[in-house]
Design a protein around this nucleic acid. Structure first.
Ligand SMILES: [Zn+2]
Ligand SMILES: [Zn+2]
Ligand SMILES: [Zn+2]
Ligand SMILES: [Zn+2]
Lengths: 165, 165
DNA sequence: ACGACGCACGTTATGTTATAACGTATCCAC
DNA sequence: GTGGATACGTTATAACATAACGTGCGTCGT
């Protein structure tokens, strides 16, 4: 049962900018749709994640923000910003690592994000798959379970690390 | 005796042998195949997870082991045991929760474990799906990524919680 | 004007999960 | 008997996350 409506928007290696650039406009819209604002602090945290081009931990962001602002910051503040950005669909949390990464995609309903995490170089690529979503749904349906938030993270080896040292 | 996981764990599409109980024999075999031993400490931790019938955190296990032994234990010791049991395929770590749960299945190659986590009652059912494995493989192949360890955890509502309060 | 409300941010403290680094003992192959 | 692998003990620290409470500010209904 091969589904042909698969969308595989894979955006290569994390060193490169995302295919769908996360712009101020996108963030602005995503937040204001929810009655929230794209404040300077939120912009700064999001910018850090964009610039890093890879997942960062909350305390990593905390340290960078302290440098950047020259002021003390508390973990709480970072986590609050991360919660908001995540709720707005601008970033994802990687459960296997406890890190946060910019979202590459405009997610349509019926698509599950799939994260390809290279165990060698640490790069993470985000894809979105309707087929994975459907198969997960099938597994859940078999036990009467209703999926709300599927998490799919795959540890493995990226193309670059398979090719050379 | 605590209520065991209900037999929700089906796999996607193919008939497969029913989930097996985790016995001492299974543990003994799984470990010795790797040149490791099923020591008293390892047995105790595994037993706790079996008796609990649900995922437990490392520090939860630590506290129980301290009670049980009347001796002080260090987190390191627990994590070492968990690492060994996980490597032997006897338990799984749930990344979304930071907890550990006994494995329900004899996993065949080509099957991805799928965890159905009820956000209402906290129950976790394990399933195994070849279809999910294949679709994840397809997504990975599109970017030259080689999957080694797929993680699939689905937050949602279990059959019981959908039925009534 | 005024109060009630929601959002955004600041601050202090604490809780939870996981690993580093080093030491001891045992067994077994060479 | 030396070296390697396994297993366990101990101390300390790192990394991730939340609780609880307070301030300021704009908006809205009255
Ligand atoms: Zn995304
Ligand atoms: Zn790589
Ligand atoms: Zn399993
Ligand atoms: Zn439930």
């Amino acid at each position: 049962m091969r589904r042909k409506n698969e969308r595989l928007s894979l955006d290569g290696h994390s060193a490169r900018p995302p295919a769908i650039a996360v712009t101020s406009d996108r963030a602005e819209r995503a937040l204001s749709q929810r009655g929230l604002q794209f404040t300077p602090l939120r912009r700064q945290i999001l910018d850090m994640l964009i610039e890093a081009g890879r997942p960062l931990g909350a305390y990593d962001l905390l340290a960078r923000q302290r440098e950047r602002a020259g002021k003390p910051f508390a973990p709480t503040q970072i986590y609050r910003v991360l919660d908001v950005l995540q709720a707005a669909g601008l970033i994802h949390r990687l459960a296997t690592q406890g890190t946060y990464v910019v979202c590459d995609h405009e997610h349509a309903a019926g698509e599950t994000p799939v994260f390809l995490v290279c165990g060698a170089c640490g790069s993470v690529a985000e894809a979105a798959s309707t087929a994975v979503e459907q198969e997960v749904e099938a597994v859940a349906a078999a036990s009467g379970f209703k999926p709300i938030h599927p998490v799919v993270e795959v540890e493995g080896r990226c193309a670059a690390c398979r090719a050379g040292p």
